[in-house]
Design a protein around this nucleic acid. Structure first.
Length: 169
DNA sequence: TAAGTGATCTCT
DNA sequence: GAGATCACTTAA
């Protein structure tokens, strides 16, 4: 039974959402891709998070309700796909870094045609891009935690093990 | 390992 | 308005 993840799932603690998203399926129209890599960006105190400097036009979405997409451009070329988590007015999101077929966050969005048109939109059937739970269960010991990628500037936060990767199928 | 690329943010 | 920075990728 395939179940589309709803707000109750995304409302959980950000790290929990990031971990639980491993092994779930990112669905775009009729294609389903198993998520194998995520990263958590949790709260205003997290120096690696865009939101740690406060609310701006760009980060406004992260302060919004759980279950919204947060999509933005980095390095002038690549879209990053995040799902907003936790409570309203608490800035947090989980970056979808990779699915089984496409490695790398920039590749994933390029191949799926994800752009800022999804930004601030809900992850459900209304946008044609959502995440669903399938029968397959991932064992906890099969998920590896590592520090996040590309956030060396974040000082003491750069080494936090906020990245989750599926070890093997 | 370096460079391409453009939105965003922080000064003026 | 100008300048720096950046949650990445590719080609060497």
């Amino acid at each position: 039974m395939n179940k589309i993840l709803n707000k109750n799932f995304y409302k959980q603690d950000t790290l929990k959402v990031a971990e639980n998203l491993i092994g779930k399926y990112l669905v775009k129209d009729d294609e389903a891709h198993m998520i194998i890599e995520t990263e958590a960006y949790d709260g205003p105190h997290d120096k690696a998070s865009h939101a740690h400097k406060g609310r701006t036009d760009r980060t406004e979405v992260m302060f919004g309700s759980a279950g919204l997409w947060y999509v933005y451009l980095v390095y002038g070329m690549y879209w990053m796909l995040n799902i907003v988590t936790s409570s309203k007015d608490y800035p947090a999101a989980v970056l979808i870094r990779g699915v089984k077929k496409f490695k790398g966050p920039g590749i994933l969005t390029r191949e799926l045609g994800v752009t800022d048109k999804f930004n601030n939109k809900p992850a459900d059937e209304s946008t044609g891009l959502w995440i669903e739970d399938r029968e397959k269960e991932i064992e906890e010991g099969n998920i590896k935690r590592t520090p996040r990628i590309g956030v060396d500037y974040a000082k003491e936060w750069k080494n936090k093990p906020y990245r989750f990767v599926l070890k093997k199928d």
